[in-house]
Design a protein around this nucleic acid. Structure first.
Lengths: 123, 123, 123, 123
DNA sequence: GTGGTCTAGACCACC
DNA sequence: GTGGTCTAGACCACG
């Protein structure tokens, strides 16, 4: 079941991309599964306090990537193969890890310090 | 001294915000120091390959945050106390670390796996 | 009696407006007459291949213009005086003719060429 | 020189499509030529009393059809070959003529009456 | 109720 | 000044 419990809007990054990213995270975490229904535009827009159109844009992008099927009048549905799940998982990890490492290195932090940081923030 | 980095709109973050963030990273890494002169808008725009207006916007934001002082006609200088440097450093780390940890945990990754990921991407 | 016609959103005009226009054309052509019963929403929607709601919307608009009377539970009947028929007829012709003539003149076509075009497309 | 002198907004048809159509008419009438600059989004939107975005949408559609070239920071420019002009001209005529003929025939008007209508509205 | 689209306004990067 | 894009709100067709 998809959830937007731990979702909060950052500043700067377009909202619809943040939503896409969050859904991909849920896919990678397998908290959302093949065939599952997504919340409707209106429901999710009310939940996040944004315009229904912004949700629409996020869903459309996911549809173009083949992760969703939408038919007018019916709810949008997840379309997931094991393959795509694995691919998304790898993508997200790579993205996040390389970004984090780049930042830490640029700030002059050593790998050991980085590891202790991870431990500190893990809880 | 501000170092080169590639900026683009790919991920949707406005370039001028990316530049602000980059400069803050250099502050946190102490590769930029108090009293240092910033490159002129024109020079930096050439260096980073973006429009001078965009640099202007970034500088203005930094000035509003009190990190820069521009005296009309003269060059801009960094205004950094130990306090502000520490604050920026903490901000950046916290932001990045908590975001990364949240993602990893949500994806069902253990701390040990996370650490080995760090090691893998460190180089 | 309302005849079949293909309706779609291709050119951007809402379907319910296309239906209204189509019915007005039948009025002007006097293939629909005063006192005639309209097909029920369900029947017409099946005939035209559109959603019953869309027919409903078209009927409502015609009712607001006074061309239809619907008594609750009963069928809708056409309310047409000679006057209104003539008015609709004139409206439609004027609209179409002036639009077509404006286009042709703007494109630098002579009246003679226009007439031969009419002849060409008449069949 | 393109002009929106004799342009007025109809109801029902999306505004951006009306604009596209009008520009195509000007192309067909050769009142607008290869290499000519189009009015900017802001200018035209103010002129027509609509949102700049609506103009943007019209221009984008023309660009996708290869009739316009747009580069950020510079004005949009017409890209017209003799071939495309001829094609547009034919398209518009065919469209308008067949539409007009269909309406007239459906209204029970004979070809002779139609021709006299044309003559009547020509002036 | 659902998704699809048109119009509107503000902001961004660039010349 | 220019075009490009993101967010917002209203309307449409459909189940």
């Amino acid at each position: 079941m998809i959830s937007f419990q731990h979702f909060s809007l950052e500043d700067g990054v377009p909202i619809y991309l943040q939503i896409v990213r969050h859904i991909k995270q849920e896919i990678a975490a397998q908290t959302i599964e093949h065939g599952e229904e997504l919340p409707s535009r209106r429901v999710l827009s009310a939940l996040l306090g944004v315009n229904p159109n912004t949700i629409q844009k996020a869903y459309k992008l996911l549809e173009e990537e083949g992760l969703i099927e939408s038919h007018s009048g019916a709810k949008s549905v997840m379309v997931l193969t094991e393959e795509t799940v694995a691919k998304i998982r790898t993508e997200l990890l790579e993205q996040e890890a390389s970004q984090a490492v780049a930042l830490l290195k640029q700030m002059g932090i050593t790998m050991e310090e980085a590891i202790s940081l991870i431990k500190k923030y893990w809880n």
